[in-house]
Simulated assay, not measured.
Amino acid sequence: MPDQNTTTCDRTGRCNNCHIGRYGDGCDMNCSTGCDAGCNRRTGRCTNNCIMGRYGNGCDNNCSIGCDAGCNRRTGRCTNCIMGRYGNGCDMNCSIGCDAGCDRGTGRCTNCILGRYGNGCGNNCSTGCDGGCDRDTGRCTNCIMGRYGNGCDMNCSKGCDSVCDRGTGRCTNCIMGQFGDGCDLNCSAGCDGGCDRSTGRCTNCRIGRYGYRCEMNCSTGCDGGCDRNDGKCTSCIEGTTGDRCDINCNNNCTICNQNNANSCTECIDGRWGPSCNKLCNTNCKQVEGTTVGKCDQMTGNCINGCVPGKIGSNCTTDCEAGRYGDNCDSKCGNCANKRPCDIITGGCGLVGCEDGFQGLVCKGKLHLHNFKENIICILYSFYLRLIISVYDYNTAS
């Protein structure tokens, strides 16, 4: 009876053909489950290809789990590897430092993740790198702030302002107060605003200093500093003169020309003239706390006014008759015999007051209720006038 797995057989019982998936004379053996489209009638070798993931004559071997898209039917070599695997069987893991897989044959990373280098990207870039390093040499792409060298493993000088040259370590700029290639030299303490990066020459000097590095002191007679190069004073303190203001002005000057001790620009109180050798008029009003007046240096005119009883720009004119005091502002009182009063005090002197008046300047009126006192004043005034009359008569004779 023919086998149900065959179509027909010969007189010996050998099947003429086998159904797909069977092999042997009697077609009584199953082809491997790994065969794709049957197997050889005699040997059982898969006829065409193996199903995906299998290899070998009977396609009964599993391709490596690292294969992508199957493996070679005969050798089992993976067609491709899944990401992260390499080798014939894709059974080796790429380095954890690889970015996007590695070479199928050597395991060399296609690219390294940021911060790694080497064939297997197993080496860490220097911590001084900024933006990773060269895949092969490990040379940093850039250095982080404050580092230099191939591996950015050397620190820039603390005198650098932020960065230094990648190759030499020379500071790009120095912080204020430092100079030199490494900015490790201090500018002079006399510098104002730092110094030249290469030479250390001060940009400017502090007030009171001069010289290349502002290491010398200006003269104590300078007022407001001195010339940066030669130390000549910009101006002098009061009473001194000369390039370094170390010469005294003449005794009558308070301020003199820097080039001439006798060319005064301000005189002491009581003096005037180009060299302050002239005396102010004694009628100038005295400066408080002194016995002399103050007058204009060029004209000699009194600056603070005149002593009482005098007027005019140089105080040489007496008050006009009937006036007295400061600026001759006061009017005389009632002196006897119409005599003028004293131009300084306003007093009537020996002539006394006109009848009916009293006081130092004879401006106070007498009142009848003081009759006794008034009579005494009148008699005294009459007595004084009589004496003066006699004196005038004797003098005239």
Rank of each mutant, 00 (worst) to 15 (best):
D3A: 14
T7E: 05
T8D: 15
D10W: 08
R11L: 14
N16M: 06
G38R: 08
N49W: 09
R54D: 00
Y55D: 06
G66Q: 07
G66S: 10
G66L: 09
C67H: 09
C71V: 04
R74V: 14
G76F: 03
T79S: 11
N80Y: 12
G84P: 00
G89M: 10
S95L: 04
D99L: 13
D103F: 05
R104Q: 12
G107I: 02
G115T: 01
C121L: 06
S126Q: 03
T137H: 09
I144C: 08
C156M: 05
V163N: 15
N173T: 08
Q178V: 04
Q178P: 01
D184K: 11
C187Q: 02
A189I: 12
C205Y: 04
Y212C: 05
M216F: 14
T220W: 00
I247P: 02
C249Y: 00
N252G: 05
C256L: 03
N257P: 06
A261W: 09
E266V: 01
G270M: 09
L279F: 14
C280L: 07
T282K: 14
N304T: 08
P308K: 10
P308W: 06
N314K: 12
E320S: 15
G325V: 01
G325N: 07
S330N: 10
K331A: 13
C335S: 04
R339A: 07
I344A: 10
G347V: 01
F357Y: 14
L360C: 01
L360Q: 13
I375R: 14
Y393W: 13
